[in-house]
Design a protein around this nucleic acid. Structure first.
Lengths: 186, 186
DNA sequence: CCATGTTGTCATCAGGCAATGTCTTCGCAT
DNA sequence: ATGCGAAGACATTGCCTGATGACAACATGG
């Protein structure tokens, strides 16, 4: 049976990876503050003390998780309905992107706050602002920040337990409504 | 009519009031979970142990703070630009309404979560839904929930430290942009 | 002016947190 | 095979949290 080692008890690369994955999921689901290193260790099936060994601290693990998903979340143009749909669907599967939380609430840890803030701008705000600039709109930066904040509000709202229909709504139904939601003829 | 009570060391009504005010401010600024009863006591200049005496627990104090500001935040029609401006200005002065946080993040305490959720619907979601119903729009409930979530996102985003221009922007400049933000001609 | 109930202060408890250091167990190079 | 460095398990430290109960200061009705 199994020529390979079914029991690999010492495998730092694997442990590191398990911790990073579990951390990414939990940070996405609950945010930085409400995720404990014990939770992460439990989900990963790895001793939480190893977080200190491999990443230095909970904060640095957060930063690492942020960078690890860089590939997952390419700089997204929120004005593209298809992209927006992808974002919502991803949030349904894996929880909201960790950095979404920072758009809406200060983190307790300044280093984590800075890292998340930077990621938020790089991946969401800046691409949008650049598009507005190209379109020649006034106040492109402000427009981009408003839109990101609004979309993040909706994305988090879906998982906050405070909205029933929003939680149940299909992303396909959501996107068109969201795009028109804030405009009405008086 | 006590002419000169300059020193009132025993005044339960006053202590109660001070605690309630401080709690309302802090819950609004930081949310339920990240506000401690020691913080509240410090800001109020009152011993935190009195929270237990007058309100029973931190959770019940939160519920009391929610109800105390009912007058402050009349059911607001977010489609009225003037109302929207008022909401943003109030948030600048006293911090976002405490119940805003629940739109975006689960609270650790189920009782607090339920109370905030109920208040959120009564004051923001339901009036908006009713208006959409009157206008004969489809999916009125979903539309209302989306819009509340989006506005809350922007309101919290202003104070999260993650957006510079959004933080500095004047409410007067904000409202029109927000109303049109999610719509663009492709 | 005293007795009694009210209000405020303080020390402390139990639980949960991140982080650290120690000790054991393992894998690999020799 | 074996010895040593790497990897993991575990207990502990120090801190912060909400809550509680004992005690002191006060006000007031008799």
């Amino acid at each position: 049976m199994s020529g390979g080692t079914q029991r690999r008890r010492h495998d730092s690369a694997r442990s590191r990876e398990l911790l990073l994955t579990a951390a990414g999921e939990l940070f996405a689901e609950r945010g930085f503050d409400r995720t404990t290193i014990r939770d992460i260790g439990e989900r990963a099936g790895v001793d939480p003390a190893l977080i200190a060994r491999y990443f230095g601290s909970k904060t640095l693990l957060y930063v690492a998780a942020l960078e690890a998903e860089r590939g997952d979340v390419p700089p997204a143009d929120l004005l593209d309905p298809e992209r927006m749909r992808e974002i919502f669907e991803r949030a349904d599967r894996r929880g909201p992107v960790p950095l979404a939380q920072v758009a809406v609430q200060r983190l307790s840890d300044p280093a984590a706050q800075d890292a998340a803030r930077a990621a938020l701008h790089t991946r969401l705000v800046d691409p949008l602002r650049d598009r507005f600039v190209r379109e020649g709109l006034d106040r492109p930066q402000l427009r981009a920040e408003i839109m990101v904040a609004a979309v993040v509000g909706v994305m988090l709202g879906r998982h906050s337990g405070a909205f029933d229909e929003l939680t149940r709504a299909d992303p396909d139904a959501l996107v068109p409504l969201l795009r028109g939601a804030l405009t009405t003829e008086d």
